[in-house]
Amino acid sequence: MEDYDYLFKIVLIGNAGVGKTCLVRRFTQGLFPPGQGATIGVDFMIKTVEIKGVKVKLQIWDTAGQERFRSITQSYYRSANALILTYDITCEDSFRCLPEWLREIEQYANNQVVTILVGNKIDLAEKREVHRQRAEEFAEAHSMLYLETSAKESDNVEKLFLDLACVLIREAKQNTLDNNESAPMPGEGKNINYLSCCNIN
């Protein structure tokens, strides 16, 4: 019934104001700026992309503003397939907070989660405070992918999500190959709507 081969949950994190919502909106709707308040009531955004004939449905979750006062719920991280950790290249502070975010990831996200570090706002190159090389080194040290984007100019936004989708497909195929029953991780339980009534013996 559902028209896709894979469904992945992608979760955005990072300081307030680094452009997380803009990235999602640019990718899912081609909009910039997304307009304030428009995210009220939107839990996550959906976009289905096709990569080499494979249909991938991306479910992209935003923080709902809970990052503003460092109050993201742990349950937000559960069962994410990928995390996009975003900072603002024109804001040193947003980069310095990254280790703090990594600690949260380590605590609450599942171990197989794919993490990508994103430096956003490269359209404001003249105001850059964080050098690309520094960020690349940081990403490498923490085994993250790295990409710089501009939600405003739409630079690398498609690439960000498509690259991520490619990695996730590869991992998913790998997991099926290994037939990794030792990794019951997310989805071990079921969403309440999908728990079937048929396992009554």
Binding site: I40, D43, A64, G65, Q66, F69, T73, Q74, S75
Partner: peptide, 21 residues
Amino acid sequence: GEIPQCFCRMCAVFGGIYCLR
């Protein structure tokens, strides 16, 4: 402990402001 957090997420999605500590 997940359950209260789920309701908090719903509150935040509809504009509620969250501050721990």
